[in-house]
Design a binder for these strands. Structure first.
Ligand SMILES: [Zn+2]
Ligand SMILES: [Zn+2]
Ligand SMILES: [Zn+2]
Ligand SMILES: [Zn+2]
Lengths: 154, 154
DNA sequence: TTATGCTATGTTATATTATAACAGCTATAG
DNA sequence: CTATAGCTGTTATAATATAACATAGCATAA
């Protein structure tokens, strides 16, 4: 909800990271150095990053050299809801609200690349209801909008 | 709307193909052999097909041998709204309603792979409105549900 | 303590998906 | 005919992702 408006991004990062730490303790998960650093890399900005961009960052601080390493770390973060994959872009982005995030909608600015994440409970209910009417039991949704953010002129 | 219920699929294919032919005449586009055959291949079933699966089919009837050929044909069909890409699966599917299809929602059965396509105007309006409130001007949407269809047991 | 099993990591190799770049062909309008 | 625009053929390569297996760290219980 925050990517496209002025905000204290340092605070934004700190709060996401501490939420993730808390959730890991709660769930008895190990936030290992490579997982933690991967999340930090994603949290640097609100832009989606390709897996190989993340890998390059990890490599530059000596934490990983090979694709499987970054895909594992991303897989962990995504499974736990600490990060998301943008299917349209094959890009990865940290979750802004790791403790309360369910089926968000992503808005991707085609100009600056920033991504905002927004819960859309009503739209989700309607989608699931429409699906149910067709006898389809929906268990997950991908909702991604692309367009222009308020800071990027048409 | 039709993939998950019993229906006359031959009719389904014929009607999509003739709608596409009409639209091509209207828009002065060339439905060349490779484009036409690509569409026919996608229309064989309501499952999403990978680009290289389509290519294999094209190759088996001598219409294309190399990746760029199938990606071009798919690109044409998608630009014109005659087919869609399922971003979650990197798969391609023919459009069921080529003459009236706008921003549909896709339901992908995780078990049988069939894909149904459904207009969701209300959900779309809500998504766009929510985005606008954040100062985001949405111009395109990807909405994909995954789950189980009525013929596939949990 | 040390044996045991589980989770995570390291590494090689390869699979899968997609595009850039350029050469050649074809339909058609003038 | 010939210029042009759009389509096709081909080579090469980029970009994204996973399989498979070897090794290391850690947790816990005999
Ligand atoms: Zn921020
Ligand atoms: Zn922007
Ligand atoms: Zn059908
Ligand atoms: Zn099914």
């Amino acid at each position: 909800m925050v990517a496209f408006v002025q905000h204290d991004h340092k605070r934004c990062k700190r709060s996401a990271m501490s939420a993730v730490k808390a959730l890991c303790e709660e769930r008895q998960l190990r936030l290992t150095p490579v997982r933690r650093r991967t999340l930090e890399i994603l949290l640097q900005s609100h832009k989606g990053l390709g897996a190989y961009e993340v890998l390059a960052e990890l490599a530059s601080c000596g934490l990983a050299q090979k694709p499987p390493q970054v895909y594992r770390a991303l897989g962990f973060l995504i499974e736990q809801g600490f990060a998301h994959k943008l299917e349209q872009q094959n890009a990865y982005v940290a979750c802004c609200e790791p403790s309360s995030c369910i089926n968000p909608c992503f808005m991707v600015c085609a100009s600056c690349g920033r991504v905002a994440e927004q819960p859309v409970p009503r739209a989700n209910k309607q989608l699931v209801a429409a699906a149910n009417e067709l006898g389809f039991a929906a268990s997950a949704s991908v909702i991604e909008l692309s367009g222009l953010c308020n800071e990027c002129p048409g």
